[in-house]
């Protein structure tokens, strides 16, 4: 089975090498693609130095959604059977990758979402829980899909999902938009609990709470595009 790990990265030079080495250690046979989203630090150089890691460089910053879409386009073009997206800031544990892809290998799901809420509720800061819950409600309101973690960046995609998903948004709102595609394409979804490692660094890199209004506005606009 041809598997790809997609790592969208924007100014992640501090922790990227560690994250990539940990992925390689846990799933050595998987291909790794870092999508360097127009970083101004040496993210690209650091990723290139890690053996067998490919780097797609966006000449300018286009956002998380754009980077994920570049990764999925690469997976589609190169006929991968499975793709996993994982954050470059070290908040996800690569040990969970095997757990995440299991439902796809067993043909139980087209998309698997690594849910922080299912298992690690106590470890997530309160403001983040509120944002996740509000985002879950928005996802249900706009797309009729229920989920425990609509903002999770740790997801696995089957070949069917890789080929059929068509994302239009470029920034953080992609997390919610994905559920629109799940609904449109009637994809099978499964959620698995994942471990989350919140550090000051990962918190500073993650979704800003103040982005909520912009995300709602962009999702509304998407309906008319």
């Amino acid at each position: 089975m041809k598997c790809l790990i997609i790592v969208p990265a924007f100014n992640e030079a501090t922790v990227l090498q560690q994250v990539l080495l940990s992925i390689k250690k846990n799933v050595p046979s998987f291909s790794i693609l870092v999508v360097n989203d127009g970083s101004s630090d040496n993210t690209s150089d650091i990723a290139s130095k890690v053996k067998k890691v490919r780097v797609a460089n966006h000449p300018i910053n286009r956002g998380l959604g754009a980077a994920i879409n570049t990764g999925l386009s690469f997976a589609k073009k190169n006929n991968f059977d499975l793709a996993v997206t994982i954050d470059a800031d070290g908040q996800h544990d690569p040990k969970d990758i095997k757990k995440l892809i299991k439902p796809i290998i067993n043909n139980q799901a087209d998309i698997v979402i690594g849910s922080r809420i299912i298992s690690t509720l106590g470890q997530i800061p309160l403001d983040r829980i509120i944002i996740i819950k509000a985002s879950n409600f928005l996802t249900w309101l706009l797309y009729g899909e229920t989920t425990t973690d609509s903002l999770s960046g740790f997801r696995a995609f089957s070949k069917k999902a890789i080929k059929s998903i068509h994302l239009k948004t470029d920034r953080m709102e992609v997390s919610n938009e994905l559920f629109s595609e799940i609904n449109r394409l009637k994809l099978k979804v499964k959620e698995v609990p994942i471990r989350v490692i919140y550090t000051n660094y990962s918190r500073s890199k993650g979704q800003k709470n103040t982005n909520a209004i912009s995300i709602i506005f962009k999702l509304m606009l998407r309906l008319f595009r």
């Binding site: 999508v35 490919r54 780097v55 797609a56 460089n57 966006h58 000449p59 300018i60 286009r62 956002g63 754009a66 879409n69 570049t70 386009s73 690469f74 073009k77 239009k168 470029d170 595009r225």
Partner: peptide, 18 residues
């Protein structure tokens, strides 16, 4: 829509360079 077109172009350039 224009932003999305720019993104498509950026993606095409990055994948072709790869």
């Amino acid at each position: 829509n224009t932003r999305h077109d720019i993104t498509k172009l950026v993606r095409k350039i990055s994948l072709s360079n790869l």
